[in-house]
Amino acid sequence: MDLETRQLQKILDEAHQLPEVLILKPVTTSTNDDVREIALKGVQSVLVCSLRQTQGRGQRQRQWVSPEGNIYLSTLLNTRTPIDGRLALEIALNILQMPSLKNLDLQVKWPNDLYSTQGKWGGILVEPLSPHQVIVGVGINLEPIPKENIDQHATSLSELGLTNISRIQLVAELYMAIQQASEWFDHHCYNLAARFNHYAAFKNQAVEFEHHSGLCSGIFLGIQDDGAVNIETSEGLKQFYQGRLRRLEISL
């Protein structure tokens, strides 16, 4: 067992949150796939973290750019409440409350992006194995991402002001934040709309929303307690549970 693994094991053990399986890797294809393989063997708690992924993915199977040196982490959650879209929102909100991040000006972009006014600094991928068991993957940019590798505004925690970054401490806090999010989820996501809307990216701004039937544009008013997006359009208020939200760039 290497030094970083021992350090992480010690932090989680002292917090009484040490999983059955804990693996730190220099490189992997996908940490979510690693957790899936372990979960199929009957393991109920697992944490896999890698410095680099060769086949990282995001929502809707989009490629997740995974250069070396950032955090790519996956774990397994077992919930009493059947999995739905609110879980990713709870995970994002709990990540923003991590001790290492609380002094930064951070946002959440519905439904699963860790965001800021400078752009995206992380993302969450939720992949259910059953109605009550889910793999949660989180990717965090610690350092700047080469601009040629991405198709959207992106930033990193170092660019947002996080200095003297302890990667192992962040991994421990991330794992515990995800576990805490599971508790919120199992307690019916109490007051979710108010908590999310406080950190919501693009709130009260002009947005475009891509959904299964096409596109709509309007003003993003935040979310409801059930996780649905509220958009005020020219045809009135509309709610969506699935889709992609982006700020509408208005040319003057």
Rank of each mutant, 00 (worst) to 15 (best):
N149G: 13
Q59P: 12
L192N: 00
R195K: 15
A92H: 03
A154Q: 08
Q180I: 05
P131E: 12
G85R: 09
I168D: 03
S156C: 08
L174K: 01
S156K: 04
P131W: 03
I124M: 02
G222I: 05
R244D: 15
V207P: 05
L8I: 07
D226Q: 06
C189D: 01
L237C: 08
I23T: 13
Y115D: 11
I95V: 10
V48A: 03
P99C: 01
Q59I: 09
Q133L: 02
C49A: 15
L22V: 01
E148H: 15
K147M: 13
T28P: 03
R86Y: 00
E249D: 15
E235I: 05
D13N: 12
H153N: 08
A194E: 15
L77N: 02
E249V: 13
Q169L: 14
A206R: 15
L22A: 02
G218V: 09
D226S: 06
Q152M: 15
A181C: 04
S50W: 01
I223K: 10
N230H: 11
Y175L: 01
Y115N: 09
S166H: 14
I165T: 06
E20N: 11
K10P: 10
S217Q: 15
P19L: 06
P82T: 00
A172M: 05
W110D: 05
N191H: 14
G123I: 09
S156D: 06
P111K: 08
D33N: 14
I38T: 02
Q59L: 09
L237N: 10
L40F: 04
